[in-house]
């Protein structure tokens, strides 16, 4: 079912879709981070897709690869019951647009990704640490952050 979503995205944003693949019946679309908000707005507003629910947003650290980080969006449609995974790559020190304007729930998720990975979300209303103390040094979920013994 979500293959249709991938096809529509490829057709509409042919230049922005970098890659797409399917694993265990889950579809993943890798997009250019510059077009993130435009793609998300389309996914949310198109009546056939209507991705009105942002299930999850998280960061992943691929240390040693350029660009280093990935921001992963898990979208769900409450009416259509389909899911899609969007991924955008962000380098260290680079910025990615915030999607708080589209789904308010992204607020805390983006703060957590900032807290854990140091990914900067441009346009976020209050990008501060959420789980770690304010004066904490470093970003714990980065691969070069030690597991213990700091």
């Amino acid at each position: 079912m979500s293959e249709m979503v991938v096809e529509k995205l490829k057709k509409r944003f042919s230049a922005s879709v970098l890659d797409s693949y399917s694993f265990r019946d889950e579809n993943t679309v890798v997009i250019k981070k510059e077009d993130l908000v435009a793609i998300c707005r389309y996914l949310k507003s198109d009546p056939e897709l209507s991705f009105d629910f942002l299930s999850d947003l998280c960061g992943v650290d691929y240390m040693g690869r350029e660009p280093r980080f990935e921001v992963v969006y898990h979208l769900f449609s409450i009416n259509k019951h389909h899911r899609i995974r969007l991924k955008a790559m962000v380098g260290e020190g680079e910025k990615i647009s915030s999607v708080v304007g589209l789904w308010s729930t992204a607020d805390w998720h983006e703060r957590e990704a900032f807290d854990m990975y140091g990914i900067i979300f441009e346009g976020h209303p209050n990008l501060t640490r959420i789980l770690m103390p304010e004066n904490w040094d470093g970003h714990p979920l980065r691969k070069d952050y030690p597991l213990k013994g700091r």
Partner: peptide, 28 residues
């Protein structure tokens, strides 16, 4: 590979997202 699976817990949608690099521990 990578998978996301969610279930309905008493509190709502609980999901796990696992990225595997083929080793015996999850990459993420």
């Amino acid at each position: 590979g990578e998978v996301y699976h969610s279930i309905e817990t008493p509190r709502g949608e609980l999901g796990f997202y696992i990225v595997s690099d083929g080793s015996n521990k999850p990459y993420r």
